[in-house]
Design a protein around this nucleic acid. Structure first.
Lengths: 161, 161
DNA sequence: AAAAGTAATGTTATGATATAACAATTCTTT
DNA sequence: AAAGAATTGTTATATCATAACATTACTTTT
């Protein structure tokens, strides 16, 4: 059964997957990048849910649908490609990966992750960026990247308690 | 040779270590916690530098100074104790641990980490917290914890380029 | 002070995540 | 068609972390 997500339940989560794949395809076409069947399939698997997915979960899915078992480098290389071109993000504190909600422009992601349903919501260009830039500036620190992962309870899960 | 850190070079880094151990001792005395020799030694090792340190680095140090080799659970249990009581923090994106600069009051840490010298600077109660609280509130999200790790170049390292 | 109970540590094994190195294949260009 | 480059397959291993149970040490009760 397909898990339902409050924010995509109207159009159906399949729409999220289709959109992500289409955008990725267009982007790769434009930038002369090769969105191979493997890379596309891994991206699709990552998008199967809005919950961060582990590399070995992806591996297991690939193995189950191929005749032969896949090996870790197969998955990690595809993930590296997708990360490098901003199509997915890595959630460091979960050792997991999730589709990028805003692949159009390069950015550092920020997530609100529910500890119950594991839904990971990506915040677009929020005030958090500005606060970080400000703190870094005060310290004379040049920002190159960041890991922002906020854990807690999402609104729907709180309502259920 | 002892690595020098710009912000503690005046008093000497040994002062950082001594302070951290003293504060930990006082806190454990007050709260009836047992800062055993092992836990104290692990805390001291974590404080050997201002760079996040891996569990297996700590393990290697312990092994080299004991007659017998130490096993991973020995270190991880000590780290768990120190984490639980706010004496150290974990840097998720580096799988590493660092002494807490503000163990007096419970808090969620935020770090500026230099990719060259690996110095990890902990920011105390910054505007970043407020921005996160604000964004979370807008999303109806209740914050329970957070991982904030900013990477880039610290001021001294930029000056050297 | 001895016994019982609890907390901490030792020990062995294994789970979970990730990468190195090289071979084979496929795609692209010449 | 051949050469070169990129991708994927394959084997092995590195790295990070915990489960499960035995032993030791500390604390409380009697």
């Amino acid at each position: 059964m397909q898990k339902k997500y409050s924010f995509c339940v109207a159009s159906g989560h399949q729409q999220c997957i289709d959109d992500a794949l289409n955008i990725a395809q267009v982007m790769c076409d434009e930038e002369q990048l090769r969105l191979t069947p493997l890379r596309k399939r891994v991206l699709e698997l990552v998008w199967q849910s809005h919950q961060p997915m582990g590399a070995y979960d992806i591996l297991a899915q690939l193995t189950s649908e191929e005749g032969r078992p896949a090996a870790p480098p197969t998955v990690y290389r595809a993930l590296d490609f997708l990360l490098e071109h901003g199509l997915i993000h890595r959630i460091a504190s979960l050792n997991a990966f999730i589709g990028c909600a805003y692949p159009q422009q390069p950015h550092q992601a920020q997530f609100l992750i529910c500890r119950l349903c594991r839904f990971a919501r990506e915040l677009p260009h929020s005030a958090i960026d500005a606060a970080i830039a400000d703190e870094a500036h005060k310290a004379g620190f040049t920002v190159e990247g960041q890991v922002i992962e906020v854990f807690g309870l999402c609104a729907p899960c709180q309502a259920e308690l």
